[in-house]
């Protein structure tokens, strides 16, 4: 198992090289020249040239890439064209906001998705099943920004229950330890801050969670329906154990195995959904920031973000595989299978 994990982590290298080449080329081919944007419309040609020279943009493209990748290996992703701050610093000051949002969203999506899916399967064709699957249908068909706007109008506008933008009331902002406000506010023991941060999270996390929840609910339902038909479920019933135990201990334990993969994939796609959510809810995370950087041709930042997200994606998949092996004793990751 450990060998398998190490091998998988080593396999990150070709993935990251491939991803970095693609994003490197795309930025340079399709994005406008950053120099005039950085220096302003009235910059002289001489200053533009000097800036391009200073930032290595006049080098041949393979040399630019080589410089970038050797820097990246030593942990230096360059500096933002605009703030002049190191890219890593720019990213890590915003990444926790996105992670916090995505984690809460995947948590909501998993808990409610599995709950709805299991109830729908156990009470197949009942009113619960129909209601659950109708909700799932809405979930997969509603665009995330539209759902976000509806939530804002209703819960912030009409009911005034929840805030519509930002991560926290600036006056309550906790001292940064982890960058996750829920955790930081707990560390500093500030329950007002915790509550405020949580209230800010609810709407964007719900909007972000909806689609994944719908997918998870549907997959759970079909997986559970299949599991409940299995012979070993009949064996379990023949033992005289309660129906709750049959479903909770025997069916769910088997039915959830494929759901782990679905949740992993959804976590990946949540990072994409976060871009829209963060824009609608003015969430100071990496998604909205990256969009801005793409529009401004801030190459180093965009390259850094893409590398980071690709890493997260691969690691999440690895985690899914490990959990999978843990849940299903039939799976053993031997050397050969890698």
């Amino acid at each position: 198992m450990l060998r398998y994990i190490i091998k998988r982590i080593l396999m990150l290298i070709p993935v990251l090289i491939g991803v970095s080449i693609i994003v490197f080329l795309i930025m340079r081919v399709f994005s406008p020249d950053p120099a005039p944007i950085v220096l302003g419309q009235h910059a002289t040609q001489a200053s533009v040239d000097a800036w391009r020279q200073a930032n290595g943009l006049n080098d041949p493209i393979y040399l630019q890439y080589f410089n970038f990748i050797t820097g990246a290996i030593t942990g230096d992703l360059g500096t933002s064209y605009y703030t002049k701050a190191p890219v890593l610093k720019e990213i890590f000051s915003r990444f926790p906001a996105t992670i916090e949002l995505a984690l809460l969203a995947i948590l909501l999506a998993s808990v409610f998705g599995i709950l709805i899916g299991v109830i729908s399967a156990v009470k197949k064709n009942s009113i619960f099943d129909n209601a659950g699957m109708f909700l799932a249908l809405i979930g997969v068909s509603m665009p995330i920004f539209w759902l976000g706007i509806l939530l804002i109008i209703f819960f912030s506008g009409t009911l005034h229950w929840l805030p519509s933008s930002g991560r926290i009331d600036p006056l309550l902002q906790p001292a940064s330890v982890t960058g996750f406000y829920l955790i930081d506010s707990l560390i500093s023991g500030d329950m007002y801050a915790f509550r405020d941060a949580f209230e800010h999270l609810i709407l964007p996390a719900s909007a972000l969670a909806m689609y994944s929840m719908a997918i998870i609910a549907r997959m759970t339902r079909s997986s559970m329906l299949e599991t409940l038909q299995q012979d070993y479920i009949r064996t379990a019933r023949a033992k005289g154990i309660s129906e709750g135990r049959v479903i909770g201990k025997h069916a769910l334990r088997n039915g959830l195995i494929p759901i782990v993969t679905v949740i992993g994939l959804q976590l990946g796609s949540l990072l994409g959904g976060a871009v829209l959510t963060e824009t609608v809810f003015s969430w100071p995370g990496i998604g909205a920031y990256t969009v801005a950087c793409i529009l401004k041709s801030d190459f180093p930042v965009v390259q850094g973000v893409v590398l980071l997200i690709a890493t997260v994606f691969v690691l999440v998949n690895l985690m899914v595989d490990v959990i999978y092996a843990f849940l299903d004793p039939r799976i053993k990751y031997s050397k050969k299978e890698v």
Binding site: D231, Y232, R234, A236, H250, R253, N254, I257, P329, R330
Partner: peptide, 13 residues
């Protein structure tokens, strides 16, 4: 005792 020995036991227990 069920007729189907291959599938009548829970694979993850």
């Amino acid at each position: 005792i069920f007729q189907e020995p291959m599938t009548s036991l829970n694979p993850v227990w």
